[in-house]
């Protein structure tokens, strides 16, 4: 291999973030080629608006994956939070939002108890809690709610309003949460603990860390973020039905993986996940522009995630 090739590989390995950005730009370029003039301020605004709920959902997923787990209940939690928020809306907006967020924190807390205290494998625990949440929500919707509830105006503005014509309101929330997560993961004690626990929980125990407390707080945070994502999403689509966020489960994991967070825990960052969420959203936009049937779109989406994850794993050399 020539020196240049080696240095390119090294550059890619050390600056994987830049490669992801390049991929994002390339995808946008592809759209511009398919339909000249399609990439404009309005398009960017749309992409950001649709990426925000996914990005926030994937934020919780990132936290959990960094600790070596996976949360398969994020989509169920997001759906439940939005539905309960909407059904509580007649009793006041504040109360409804608090109720929705509480759902997320409560489910995350139970996940945390299962994973942290009882050492249940995260996959099983969150899968089971996902079933419990969806089952309870179905029961709740049939017992207590007469019709599909509407979304309050504040949430609708949060999910699909814009400032100065183009800047989505949800972007402010996403940026705020994103900054808090990036700084929190990088330079707070709790952030570093997440990596340590994900890397080797036994070593952190020997170092005097109560791993179960870290996991408990982490899963609760993931539940909270999932609930926020659910609220934003219900505002974006201006509805809160019983399958609102189901489609976002796979993308939430894919965004984390494409963003370079190891599924085995201990390494990764939220900035990668943000770009991952943007790439997936732009990808969706490409497939929509190509006007392919939904079934084909689904096949291509899956195939492209395989290719991206494979390329990433190959280039960076970690499994």
């Amino acid at each position: 291999m020539s020196t240049r090739a080696v240095s390119v590989v090294r550059l890619v390995q050390q600056r994987s973030f830049l490669v992801l950005i390049a991929l994002l730009v390339a995808l946008a370029g592809l759209i511009e080629i398919i339909r000249p003039g399609a990439v404009n301020a309005h398009w960017v605004s749309n992409i950001l608006e649709f990426a925000a709920p996914l990005g926030i959902l994937a934020a919780g997923q990132t936290l959990v994956v960094i600790t070596g787990g996976i949360d398969l209940s994020v989509a169920n939690v997001a759906t439940a939070a939005a539905y309960i928020m909407a059904s509580q809306a007649p009793f006041g907006v504040t109360r409804s939002i608090v109720a929705g967020l509480l759902v997320g924190v409560a489910v995350g807390f139970v996940n945390g108890i299962g994973v942290g205290v009882f050492r249940v494998q995260p996959l099983i625990m969150t899968l089971a809690m996902g079933l419990v949440v969806t089952g309870s929500l179905n029961v709740y919707s049939q017992a207590a709610v007469r019709s599909v509830p509407g979304v309050p105006a504040v949430i609708h503005t949060l999910g699909s309003g814009t400032v100065l014509g183009y800047v989505p309101v949800s972007l402010f929330l996403w940026a705020l949460l994103g900054a808090a997560l990036i700084i929190g993961l990088r330079s707070t004690g709790f952030g570093r603990l997440l990596y340590a626990v994900g890397d080797n929980i036994e070593a952190t125990r020997l170092a005097g860390v109560r791993g179960w407390q870290v996991l408990l707080a982490n899963y609760a945070a993931c539940g909270f973020l999932s609930a926020v994502a659910g609220l934003v999403l219900s505002g974006t689509v201006n509805a809160a039905d019983l399958s609102l966020a189901t489609v976002l489960l796979l993308p939430s994991v894919a965004a984390v993986v494409i963003g370079g967070t190891s599924i085995f825990g201990g390494s990764g960052s939220y900035s990668g996940t943000i770009v991952g969420a943007l790439i997936l959203t732009v990808l969706n936009s490409v497939l929509t522009l190509l006007d392919v049937p939904d079934a084909v779109k689904q096949v291509l989406y899956g195939a492209i995630i395989v290719v991206l994850a494979a390329a990433y794993t190959r280039v960076l050399g970690h499994e």
């Binding site: 796979l250 894919a254 993986v257 096949v299 899956g302 995630i305 994850a309 494979a310 794993t313």
Partner: peptide, 16 residues
């Protein structure tokens, strides 16, 4: 072939 974790690949192929 890809050495990507099982859970990621099968989640993606479930879409396929």
């Amino acid at each position: 072939l890809t050495r990507v974790p099982d859970i990621v690949i099968t989640l993606a192929t479930s879409f396929i």
